[in-house]
């Protein structure tokens, strides 16, 4: 991990670490809440914080558009969703700005943050993001559309239909495949027979590259370059960020039925959060004091959000008919 040539200041690097830590701790809290029967479901970001936060740091808040997928706690927090809002959606409460408690947890969407709501059939967000990119191009806005998906999702027809259209029209869209090696229980070797998901870019005539998804700086640079290309009218980019899903697919499965503990333990040694922390410490950017302060701040934020979301009311039954049609 080279920090020197990243173009990021020490403060920015610390910020990146803060959001990675915030994502991890938020996710961990959700598991506790799930296991204690407070929330119905968790679909985790653990192991993917580096790529999620690194990519989002290259985007412009309030300018660019995102169509995140269900693991993107790191993306949504970096793009401006508050911890309270994150927990309101985990508890599916009325005040949740994602959907007012209507969506499955992890199906992020936030009008004010230019974040498009996704849905459970995977990869539908790719052509949606391409549609947004077409709108940006037609309105000549200096903005990009950023969409993420898992590597398993790259097998869907919508991946192809979206990327092909984006390429034909040179649209400002960045597609980031978060390759965490698993599509629920199926390992990468059961999903694709190409070396890199990014190789698929060749078929669309666009730039594709694979980056270390455990390195937030490498992902930041790849997305920054993609953003520059997009704004220069050079069309879409396909980025594959490779890491490892550290948790089971969700709170509803036991991953040890399809992979070994040894494999997971080995991956934990490469955990982007741990490596980034070590690197920042080695270079004297992160001190024990700063880390402690971050942990304390994050714990307070998550405690507050948990209590607030837990006590917040569910959507009233009387709202059942709202939002079906324009009123």
């Amino acid at each position: 991990m080279t920090l020197k040539d990243s173009g990021l200041s020490n403060d920015q690097l610390l910020d990146m670490f803060y959001y990675m830590l915030l994502s991890r701790r938020s996710d961990e809290r959700m598991w506790l809440l799930n296991r204690s029967g407070k929330i119905p479901f968790v679909v985790s970001c653990q192991g993917q914080e580096a790529m999620q936060v690194g990519s989002s740091f290259a985007l412009h808040k309030g300018v660019d558009y995102t169509a995140p997928y269900y693991r993107d706690v790191g993306v949504v927090l970096t793009m401006g969703m508050t911890v309270k809002e994150l927990f309101l959606q985990a508890f599916a409460k009325a005040e949740d700005p994602n959907s007012g408690g209507r969506q499955m947890p992890g199906h992020f969407g936030h009008r004010r943050l230019n974040m498009l709501s996704g849905s459970s059939p995977v990869t539908t967000q790719v052509p949606h993001a391409v549609g947004i990119a077409l709108a940006l191009k037609m309105k000549q806005e200096e903005a990009v559309s950023f969409v993420t998906l898992g590597e398993g999702s790259s097998n869907q027809g919508d991946f192809h239909e979206g990327l092909n259209f984006a390429s034909v029209h040179d649209l400002p869209v960045i597609v980031m495949v978060e390759n965490n090696q698993y599509a629920i229980s199926c390992g990468i070797e059961q999903q694709v027979n190409c070396k890199h998901i990014s190789d698929r870019a060749i078929g669309y005539g666009i730039h594709g590259e694979t980056v270390d998804g455990n390195d937030p700086v490498a992902v930041y640079q790849a997305i920054s370059n993609a953003r520059k290309r997009a704004l220069a009218g050079m069309g879409p980019t396909l980025i594959e960020a490779v890491a490892y899903r550290l948790t089971p697919h969700s709170s509803d499965d036991n991953d040890l039925t399809y992979r070994t503990k040894e494999e997971v333990d080995l991956a934990k040694e490469k955990d982007g959060l741990i490596i980034f922390k070590r690197t920042l410490k080695d270079q004297g950017i992160l001190t024990a004091d700063i880390e402690q302060a971050y942990e304390a701040k994050i714990k307070a934020l998550i405690d507050e959000a948990t209590t607030y979301a837990d006590e917040a009311p569910y959507a009233d039954v009387s709202t059942l008919f709202d939002g079906v049609y324009h009123q």
Partner: peptide
């Protein structure tokens, strides 16, 4: 004109609609 890709046509319409277009 769009490429021959009906699902993509539908998805494109959705993305455009979120940006104030009437596809």
């Amino acid at each position: 004109d769009t490429p021959l890709a009906e699902s993509g046509i539908g998805g494109l319409a959705i993305g455009l609609a979120t940006q104030g277009f009437r596809p």
